[in-house]
Protein backbone atom coordinates (compact mmCIF):
# COMPACT_ATOMS: atom_id res chain seq x y z
CA UNK A 1 0.00 0.00 0.00
CA UNK A 2 1.28 3.43 -0.91
CA UNK A 3 2.29 5.82 1.79
CA UNK A 4 -0.81 7.61 3.08
CA UNK A 5 0.81 10.86 4.22
CA UNK A 6 3.44 12.97 2.64
CA UNK A 7 6.65 13.02 4.74
CA UNK A 8 5.92 16.67 5.54
CA UNK A 9 2.49 15.94 7.07
CA UNK A 10 2.08 17.21 10.63
CA UNK A 11 0.08 15.80 13.54
CA UNK A 12 -3.03 17.78 12.61
CA UNK A 13 -3.03 16.07 9.23
CA UNK A 14 -2.77 12.67 10.92
CA UNK A 15 -5.54 13.50 13.40
CA UNK A 16 -7.74 14.50 10.49
CA UNK A 17 -7.99 10.83 9.61
CA UNK A 18 -9.72 10.10 12.91
CA UNK A 19 -11.77 13.28 12.63
CA UNK A 20 -12.93 12.28 9.17
CA UNK A 21 -14.33 9.02 10.53
CA UNK A 22 -16.08 10.80 13.40
CA UNK A 23 -17.43 13.55 11.16
CA UNK A 24 -18.56 11.07 8.54
CA UNK A 25 -20.29 8.95 11.16
CA UNK A 26 -21.98 11.95 12.72
CA UNK A 27 -23.11 13.18 9.33
CA UNK A 28 -24.61 9.78 8.54
CA UNK A 29 -26.35 9.66 11.91
CA UNK A 30 -27.68 13.17 11.41
CA UNK A 31 -28.91 12.17 7.98
CA UNK A 32 -30.87 9.19 9.35
CA UNK A 33 -32.42 11.36 12.05
CA UNK A 34 -33.34 14.20 9.70
CA UNK A 35 -34.82 11.75 7.21
CA UNK A 36 -37.11 10.42 9.95
CA UNK A 37 -37.94 13.81 11.39
CA UNK A 38 -41.37 15.32 11.05
CA UNK A 39 -39.69 18.11 9.09
CA UNK A 40 -39.37 15.68 6.18
CA UNK A 41 -42.17 13.19 6.86
CA UNK A 42 -44.85 15.78 7.80
CA UNK A 43 -45.71 13.62 10.80
CA UNK A 44 -47.91 15.45 13.35
CA UNK A 45 -48.23 18.38 10.95
CA UNK A 46 -51.69 19.96 10.96
CA UNK A 47 -52.68 21.62 7.74
CA UNK A 48 -54.88 24.63 7.23
CA UNK A 49 -58.01 23.36 5.50
CA UNK A 50 -60.53 25.48 3.54
CA UNK A 51 -63.25 24.48 6.04
CA UNK A 52 -62.73 24.17 9.79
CA UNK A 53 -63.92 20.58 9.73
CA UNK A 54 -63.43 18.67 12.97
CA UNK A 55 -63.29 14.88 13.05
CA UNK A 56 -63.36 15.16 16.85
CA UNK A 57 -66.84 16.66 16.62
CA UNK A 58 -68.29 14.48 13.87
CA UNK A 59 -66.78 11.17 14.97
CA UNK A 60 -66.17 11.71 18.67
CA UNK A 61 -69.19 13.80 19.69
CA UNK A 62 -71.76 12.72 17.10
CA UNK A 63 -70.68 9.10 16.71
CA UNK A 64 -70.91 9.10 12.94
CA UNK A 65 -69.33 5.97 11.44
CA UNK A 66 -66.22 6.45 9.26
CA UNK A 67 -68.04 4.84 6.33
CA UNK A 68 -70.87 7.37 6.32
CA UNK A 69 -68.51 9.72 4.48
CA UNK A 70 -65.61 7.48 3.40
CA UNK A 71 -67.95 5.16 1.53
CA UNK A 72 -65.45 3.39 -0.70
CA UNK A 73 -63.01 2.31 2.01
CA UNK A 74 -64.27 -1.30 1.82
CA UNK A 75 -64.26 -1.55 -1.97
CA UNK A 76 -61.53 0.64 -3.43
CA UNK A 77 -57.96 1.81 -3.11
CA UNK A 78 -59.08 5.25 -1.98
CA UNK A 79 -61.27 5.52 1.11
CA UNK A 80 -63.14 8.31 -0.62
CA UNK A 81 -63.43 12.01 0.12
CA UNK A 82 -67.15 12.72 0.50
CA UNK A 83 -68.83 14.90 -2.12
CA UNK A 84 -70.30 18.15 -0.79
CA UNK A 85 -73.71 16.48 -1.18
CA UNK A 86 -72.82 14.27 1.80
CA UNK A 87 -72.15 17.34 3.97
CA UNK A 88 -75.52 18.72 2.92
CA UNK A 89 -77.33 15.62 4.17
CA UNK A 90 -77.15 17.25 7.60
CA UNK A 91 -75.99 20.78 6.90
CA UNK A 92 -78.92 21.70 4.69
CA UNK A 93 -80.60 22.11 8.09
CA UNK A 94 -77.87 22.30 10.74
CA UNK A 95 -75.66 25.40 10.82
CA UNK A 96 -76.88 26.11 7.31
CA UNK A 97 -76.35 29.86 7.68
CA UNK A 98 -73.10 29.69 9.62
CA UNK A 99 -70.19 31.63 8.10
CA UNK A 100 -67.93 28.69 9.01
CA UNK A 101 -69.83 26.64 6.45
CA UNK A 102 -69.78 29.22 3.68
CA UNK A 103 -67.09 27.33 1.68
CA UNK A 104 -69.33 24.25 1.82
CA UNK A 105 -72.40 26.22 0.79
CA UNK A 106 -70.41 27.86 -2.02
CA UNK A 107 -69.19 24.47 -3.22
CA UNK A 108 -72.74 23.13 -3.28
CA UNK A 109 -74.15 26.25 -4.92
CA UNK A 110 -71.51 26.48 -7.67
CA UNK A 111 -71.07 22.72 -8.11
CA UNK A 112 -67.34 23.03 -7.47
CA UNK A 113 -65.43 20.62 -5.22
CA UNK A 114 -63.92 21.86 -1.96
CA UNK A 115 -60.14 22.02 -2.27
CA UNK A 116 -59.06 20.00 0.76
CA UNK A 117 -55.37 19.88 1.61
CA UNK A 118 -54.10 16.34 1.40
CA UNK A 119 -52.73 15.15 4.75
CA UNK A 120 -51.63 11.60 3.92
CA UNK A 121 -49.66 11.77 0.69
CA UNK A 122 -47.92 8.57 -0.30
CA UNK A 123 -45.12 8.78 -2.87
CA UNK A 124 -46.12 7.95 -6.44
CA UNK A 125 -44.01 4.80 -6.50
CA UNK A 126 -45.86 3.18 -3.58
CA UNK A 127 -49.08 1.24 -4.20
CA UNK A 128 -51.63 1.37 -1.42
CA UNK A 129 -55.16 -0.01 -1.23
CA UNK A 130 -57.50 0.66 1.69
CA UNK A 131 -59.95 -2.16 0.93
CA UNK A 132 -57.48 -5.03 1.34
CA UNK A 133 -56.26 -3.63 4.65
CA UNK A 134 -59.71 -3.34 6.24
CA UNK A 135 -60.63 -6.75 4.80
CA UNK A 136 -57.64 -8.37 6.52
CA UNK A 137 -58.19 -6.90 9.95
CA UNK A 138 -56.18 -3.67 9.92
CA UNK A 139 -58.22 -1.04 11.74
CA UNK A 140 -58.43 2.65 10.87
CA UNK A 141 -56.72 3.79 14.05
CA UNK A 142 -53.77 1.45 13.54
CA UNK A 143 -52.47 3.75 10.81
CA UNK A 144 -54.45 6.96 11.29
CA UNK A 145 -54.39 7.17 15.08
CA UNK A 146 -57.37 8.26 17.15
CA UNK A 147 -59.10 10.37 14.54
CA UNK A 148 -62.00 10.89 16.95
CA UNK A 149 -59.68 13.01 19.08
CA UNK A 150 -58.29 15.11 16.25
CA UNK A 151 -59.88 18.52 15.80
CA UNK A 152 -57.76 18.87 12.70
CA UNK A 153 -56.35 15.73 11.20
CA UNK A 154 -52.63 15.13 11.14
CA UNK A 155 -50.46 12.27 10.05
CA UNK A 156 -50.04 9.99 13.04
CA UNK A 157 -47.21 7.96 11.53
CA UNK A 158 -44.23 8.62 9.30
CA UNK A 159 -45.66 6.71 6.29
CA UNK A 160 -42.08 5.71 5.55
CA UNK A 161 -41.18 2.33 4.16
CA UNK A 162 -39.71 1.10 7.42
CA UNK A 163 -43.04 1.90 9.08
CA UNK A 164 -44.99 -0.07 6.45
CA UNK A 165 -42.59 -2.96 6.83
CA UNK A 166 -42.89 -3.00 10.61
CA UNK A 167 -46.42 -4.36 10.07
CA UNK A 168 -45.85 -6.27 6.82
CA UNK A 169 -43.15 -8.26 8.60
CA UNK A 170 -45.33 -9.00 11.66
CA UNK A 171 -48.99 -8.35 10.81
CA UNK A 172 -50.14 -10.49 13.74
CA UNK A 173 -48.96 -7.74 16.08
CA UNK A 174 -51.44 -5.24 14.70
CA UNK A 175 -54.54 -6.99 13.37
CA UNK A 176 -57.93 -7.06 15.09
CA UNK A 177 -61.35 -8.70 14.57
CA UNK A 178 -63.23 -7.37 11.56
CA UNK A 179 -66.04 -6.18 13.82
CA UNK A 180 -63.60 -3.78 15.50
CA UNK A 181 -62.04 -2.22 12.39
CA UNK A 182 -63.85 1.10 12.84
CA UNK A 183 -63.50 1.13 16.63
CA UNK A 184 -61.32 4.11 17.50
CA UNK A 185 -60.78 2.91 21.07
CA UNK A 186 -59.25 -0.42 20.07
CA UNK A 187 -55.90 -1.26 21.60
CA UNK A 188 -53.57 -3.98 20.34
CA UNK A 189 -53.51 -5.38 23.87
CA UNK A 190 -57.26 -6.11 23.69
CA UNK A 191 -56.33 -9.49 22.24
CA UNK A 192 -53.62 -11.90 23.34
CA UNK A 193 -50.78 -12.75 20.99
CA UNK A 194 -52.29 -16.20 20.43
CA UNK A 195 -55.67 -14.75 19.47
CA UNK A 196 -54.03 -12.39 17.01
CA UNK A 197 -51.97 -15.22 15.51
CA UNK A 198 -55.20 -17.16 15.06
CA UNK A 199 -56.77 -14.16 13.30
CA UNK A 200 -53.84 -14.10 10.91
CA UNK A 201 -54.63 -17.68 9.94
CA UNK A 202 -58.38 -17.07 9.79
CA UNK A 203 -57.98 -14.05 7.53
CA UNK A 204 -55.56 -15.97 5.30
CA UNK A 205 -52.93 -13.26 5.60
CA UNK A 206 -50.05 -14.19 3.33
CA UNK A 207 -46.55 -15.14 4.31
CA UNK A 208 -43.96 -12.67 5.43
CA UNK A 209 -42.01 -13.33 2.23
CA UNK A 210 -44.96 -12.30 0.06
CA UNK A 211 -45.95 -9.32 2.21
CA UNK A 212 -42.43 -7.94 2.08
CA UNK A 213 -41.81 -8.75 -1.57
CA UNK A 214 -40.83 -5.61 -3.52
CA UNK A 215 -43.67 -5.89 -6.00
CA UNK A 216 -46.33 -6.07 -3.29
CA UNK A 217 -46.03 -2.31 -2.86
CA UNK A 218 -43.94 -1.17 -5.83
CA UNK A 219 -45.93 -2.21 -8.88
Amino acid sequence: MAQLFHPGANNIAKASLVLAVILGGSAFYAYTQIARSSYLTNQYLEKQQPVQFSHRHHVGDDGIDCRYCHTSVENAASAGIPPTQTCMNCHNQLWADSPYLEPVQASFRDNKPIKWERVHDLPGYAYFNHSIHVAKGVGCSTCHGQIDNMASVYQENTLQMEWCLSCHRNPEQFIRPKSEIYNMEWSDSDLTAEERSKLKVDYKIRSRELLTSCSTCHR
Binding site: H6, G8, N10, I12, A13, S16
Partner: peptide
Protein backbone atom coordinates in the same frame (compact mmCIF):
# COMPACT_ATOMS: atom_id res chain seq x y z
CA UNK B 1 -4.32 16.56 1.12
CA UNK B 2 -5.43 20.02 2.13
CA UNK B 3 -3.02 20.12 5.04
CA UNK B 4 0.05 19.63 2.85
CA UNK B 5 2.76 22.18 3.46
CA UNK B 6 2.72 25.05 0.99
CA UNK B 7 5.98 23.98 -0.62
CA UNK B 8 4.63 20.47 -1.37
CA UNK B 9 3.09 21.49 -4.68
Amino acid sequence: MLTNKPNAG
